[in-house]
Write a protein that binds this DNA or RNA. Structure first.
Length: 150
DNA sequence: CCTGAGCGG
């Protein structure tokens, strides 16, 4: 009997404390009333499509004209196993065109290479690394079977 | 050698 009365008194005191701490609660309700603004954001068209499908071959642009294939490989080798790296040079003049290609051993290395080198500095220029698109096999050799490297 | 958007052999 006495125990029941004590328990009831304790529950009543607890609920009274909870109902007492209600100050500062009505401000947040007023602030959250702006969530349903009648203007729909038309920024769904601002997204850019990915440049190319993931592959082990990367297209690197923004290179310094003095950057060589060795410098390109050395910069990208820190983020994965580089299978082949080449700065594209003009066929007649022999000078760099300012971009190149880096081929990694695996797709995971290529992804790490993009995330690690895209937007970084190389020889004083900001370079951009992305997946290279597939290119038609070079027709320099007659009757040579087109070796698909990707 | 250089200009600086851009996809090589």
């Amino acid at each position: 009997m006495a125990m029941r009365a004590a328990a009831t008194a304790a529950i009543s005191a607890h609920s009274r404390v909870s109902a007492n701490s209600q100050m500062g609660m009505g401000i947040k309700v007023l602030c959250s009333s702006f969530s349903s603004f009648p203007f729909n954001l038309p920024q769904t068209k601002l997204e850019k499509p990915p440049p190319a499908e993931p592959s082990t071959n990367l297209f690197v642009s923004g290179l310094n004209k003095r950057t060589t294939s060795e410098g390109l490989r050395d910069a990208f080798a820190k983020f994965g196993e580089v299978d082949h790296a080449k700065v594209v040079t003009d066929r007649v003049s022999g000078f760099s065109k300012g971009f190149g290609f880096v081929k990694y051993a695996t797709i995971a290395d290529a992804e790490a290479g993009i995330k690690g080198m895209d937007g970084q500095f190389l020889d004083g220029w900001v370079i951009f690394a992305e997946y290279a698109r597939p290119r038609a096999p070079f027709p320099s050799m007659n009757n040579a079977p087109p070796q698909r490297q990707w």
